[in-house]
Design a protein around this nucleic acid. Sequence first.
DNA 1: GGCAGCCCATAAGGTAGTTTAAGAAAGCGA
DNA 2: TCGCTTTCTTAAACTACCTTATGGGCTGCC
Lengths: 193, 193
Amino acid sequence: MTTTALLAYFERVLSLTEAEKSLVAEAFQERKVKRRHFILQKGDVCKHHTFVVAGCFRMYLVDDKGKEHNLQFAIENWWITDIASFYAAEPSSLYIEALENSTILQLRKEDQVKFFDDNLTFNRIFRALTENALVNAHRRILQNISSTAEERYLDFLKRYPQFLQRLSNVQIASYLGVTPEFLSTIRKKMIGS
Amino acid sequence: MTTTALLAYFERVLSLTEAEKSLVAEAFQERKVKRRHFILQKGDVCKHHTFVVAGCFRMYLVDDKGKEHNLQFAIENWWITDIASFYAAEPSSLYIEALENSTILQLRKEDQVKFFDDNLTFNRIFRALTENALVNAHRRILQNISSTAEERYLDFLKRYPQFLQRLSNVQIASYLGVTPEFLSTIRKKMIGS
DNA sequence: GGCAGCCCATAAGGTAGTTTAAGAAAGCGA
DNA sequence: TCGCTTTCTTAAACTACCTTATGGGCTGCC
């Protein structure tokens, strides 16, 4: 059963009745995505909440000069959604790309309303997820305005060691907001000391 | 009635019954705060959601070198809370300071649970508020990693013109993540062109 | 009314991070 | 297994932004 991981995830927040578990199985759809394929592209409206069962994704922006800036990664048991586009039903300015062959569970917005909007437990769960994401976003803003690139890299290594083996330095540099060349000099300096 | 502005705010999201309006009046407490006084200091646990009825606040971090970094401002009809501390009940690393003599409405965490946790309407409202805050946070992260200080300043002017008259350039510079001196050179350059 | 404290501007020298270019190593598709 | 694309590194020139210092104007306070 592919929703096993998702149910386990939900039950870390609040426990579910059997009826609620069935709702989850009914509302979420499984999908396989190949490496380098996109589940969201600029201009699309983001119509799904996506939960990663297996694999790895990145969400990024392409700026005026054509440069990519990674906003977020997601591996097993993470969510990845352009919430600005999802909630406002506006065209997204972001891309979500699979970095590995992946399996996901998706919840369409209509199905979120249909299945979960009247349910207090799921309202609490989705509120908790959003609060959690907001705490992380605030931490990252603080870090961006108060730390150097080296400090951010060290924090990234400590906080997400599981990403190190799966992501190239190009991807990590883009997430930290520096060029791969500069990340390379940071790494060199760290090994030296 | 001091909760008028707050009720109007809530009803922009979802309409409330009379009973729910009474709940709001019961749960929120009014408080006056003088300029330069704090409603949160580093080490405190953030125990309230704060809604600004009148006045102006800033939330900021002090880094290892003693420098202040503004994370957020709040004026009339804005919320200001250290959500990381509030939800995790951990000591905060932030300060929230009144920049003007102000009037606020505060909701204690226990009262949020007591009055609103079982109420579907308020769950939806608080979820919507959090989603909104998350969208803003994501936009700000994107901007921090993809824009220059000048671009961020221009966007700040466009997005929050009402802040211009009320905040010093020192406060704005700290929000943008640059020194006041550099903001001054940006402003000079803009006038010249 | 005068002093203290804050705010803004300007300038010179310094540092963090970028750009461009080039070469070697490693992974991927056919 | 070959060829191609991607990845990592190094280096030199460049730019965005910081630091420190100075001076002048404004505001609030006794």
